[in-house]
Every structure is written in C-alpha cells, then in structure tokens.
C-alpha cells in the first residue's frame, strides 16, 4: 500500500482519493500504528467531512497518549529519583518529552528507559517497590532476558496497567553489533525535570538499530517515519551530519544508517547527506517491499517476504547454535 507513505510524504496526494481510498488509507494507517501521525500530517489538507472527523478523533486520541506517556515517565522518575542515576527516555516518550516533531500524533505504547547496566539491579528493586510487577513468570524467558537481552523482562504497573521496558543498551547482547551504551548515556541530554534524552545523533542511530538490526521490520513504516521527522528537525543544525557519521562508526551502525537514509529518502523524500546514504544496495528493494506489505483492508501481504524478514530477525539476534537451542526450547514448550 503506497498511498499511506505517499500521504505522509506529500499530503496533497490525498486530493485524488475517493471514499474507498480514504477508508483504505485509514485501515492501513491504523494497522501501521500511524493514524495519529497521519492526522497531524493532514491537518491543513482539504478533505471530506467524514474523513476530517475521523482524523480529528485520532488527534484527540494521540493527545491522550502523549499525556499518559509523559505521566508514566514522571512516575518512573519519582520511583528512581533516590538512586541518583541517569534515566534516559527512549523512542516515543523521548520525542514527546522533548516536544519534537517526531512526537506529533505518534502512538506511544510502553515506556522505554535506559539506565547504566551496573544500576539495573537497583532500578529493578526501586520499580518493584513502587508498584511494578513482572509480566513473564516463565523461568526460561526470565533467564533468557537476563542473560542475553538488552533490557529487563517487561514490568507492568499493578495499578496503572502500563508496561515499562528497562534497557541497559540498545540491542540484544547476542546481536552481531554492539553499540556503545556507555557513550550514549554519557552524552545524553538532561531535560528540565531531570529525565534525559539521547543526544541527537544517538536518537537517530537508536532508531536505526531498532529498525534494521533487531526485529522483523514489523511497524517499520512508522519507525522510518520517526527517522524522517528526526532527520528533518535535527539535520539543519550545523555539523549534524559529520557528527552522525562519526557516531555511526563508533556504534558500528554505518551500514544500517546508510540503508535507513536511502529508504527514508525513497519513501518520504527526506533530505539526507548523499555521501552518507551511499549507493543503493542490492537488497534495498526487498526492504521497500517489506515496508509496504499492507493492503487497503489493513492486512499484511507478501507472506514470503515477511517470513524471510522474520527469519532474518532471529538470525541477526543470535548465533546459529544458540538460535537452534532457543527455537528447540520454545517449540517444546509450545507442544
């Protein structure tokens, strides 16, 4: 479904939509968790009254997400305050807290924060004392998270019913790439209330790592839209692209960054540094196919492409022998 990416890139493309086109656009946008971002993007666009009503609801809904996400961040801040450690907000909550363009209408689910690895235990204890509880009671899953993942097993607050993911780095420990988490923490920027967000370049690179070095690209269109908004807002600051290049090298994410720049330029016409984006790779088209694999009923299409990316995501996440062991354990539990 190209219409969604087109509408995000250039709102005027919606002028040609008929009633079915609008209904399909909304179904696809909801499936990609982009209805709120779409609503803000098309705010000034003329459209049928029925479409305008649906998008007005989406904007109101996004405002409520933003408000509750910021409240959840505040709850975490209070719970962790006495530990005196840097607490870095990640992804949607960070964009909202910093008032960035990427936050406009963005859906925000769980609260993602990052703390220094050596402070994980203390953070966990403090959060549990403040009312968060484990979601996964399964001992294998729990041990797996603790030994191999970049975050604690998810915690949920017993009164507010909201999840928190406490990260100590940005990619699983078993992944082939190891971004420099200490540098990300050290260079993070403090906000008024004491919470932190990543430095601009790290914000982009965390998004890039999340997109291509982890996961199977589900929600990729939305995550790439984050990149577009971040790059447009941050890219105009003097020296940004040079710092981004250096930072990508530090984290080992040069290839991933280049791919992200090419894709966001292709789909959203993002202005990027051409030298950094490099020449189109053999697989760029596959990524585009995967990102647009959604029809006007909100259904996933291109099952084979999807499966290929699913396999790829596990391949990236762990070495082959470990992957085999993991899948075997999971399979035995499922049967």
């Amino acid at each position: 479904m190209r219409a969604l990416a087109d509408a995000m890139r250039e709102p005027a493309t919606t002028a040609t939509l008929d009633a079915e086109g609008w209904t399909s656009l909304f179904a696809a946008a909801r499936a990609e968790q982009m209805i709120g971002s779409l609503a803000f993007r098309l705010e000034a666009q003329p459209m049928p009254a029925a479409a305008a009503r649906i998008l007005a609801d989406a904007r109101a809904s996004a405002e409520q997400w933003r408000r509750s996400a910021l409240w959840e961040a505040e709850m975490a801040r209070r719970a962790l305050a006495q530990l005196d450690l840097p607490v870095v907000l990640m992804k949607g909550t960070a964009y909202a807290a910093a008032g960035m363009d990427a936050g406009a209408g963005r859906s925000i689910g769980d609260l993602d924060i990052m703390v220094p690895r050596e402070a994980l235990k203390a953070a966990e204890t403090a959060l549990i004392a403040a009312g968060w509880e484990w979601v996964k009671p399964d001992p294998y899953d729990d041990a797996y998270y603790r030994d191999h993942m970049h975050e604690l097993p998810p915690l949920i607050h017993r009164e507010r019913d909201r999840m928190i993911d406490v990260h100590h780095t940005t990619l699983p420990l078993t992944a082939r790439i190891t971004p420099d988490a200490a540098a990300m923490l050290a260079d993070s920027v403090v906000l008024e209330d004491g919470l932190r967000i990543m430095a601009p370049e790290d914000m982009v690179l965390h998004g890039v790592a999340h997109l291509f070095a982890d996961g199977d690209l589900a929600g990729g269109l939305r995550n790439l839209w984050d990149q577009d908004r971040l790059l447009r807002e941050l890219g105009v600051v003097a020296g940004f692209w040079d710092r981004l290049r250096a930072r990508a090298r530090l984290h080992g994410l040069e290839w991933h960054l280049a791919l992200a720049l090419r894709l966001t330029r292709h789909l959203y016409a993002t202005p990027v540094d051409p030298a950094l984006a490099g020449r189109a790779g053999l697989f760029d088209r596959w990524f585009v196919r995967r990102l647009l694999a959604r029809d006007g009923w909100g259904r996933q299409t291109r099952k084979f492409t999807q499966l290929a990316f699913y396999i790829r995501s596990h391949w990236l996440r762990m070495p082959p022998a470990m992957l085999a062991r993991h899948l075997w354990t999971k399979w035995r539990k499922a049967t």
């Binding site: 009633a19 609008w22 209904t23 909304f26 179904a27 049928p48 029925a50 649906i54 009923w297 259904r299």
Partner: peptide
C-alpha cells in the same frame, strides 16, 4: 451507507 462513503471502522472476517 457510511457518511460520504467513508467508514469509521473496518471489520474483517477471515
């Protein structure tokens, strides 16, 4: 019919 032919919600039975 939906107002203006534009549905608020899509349901799929599949």
């Amino acid at each position: 019919e939906p107002d203006g032919g534009i549905a608020d919600f899509t349901v799929r039975l599949e």
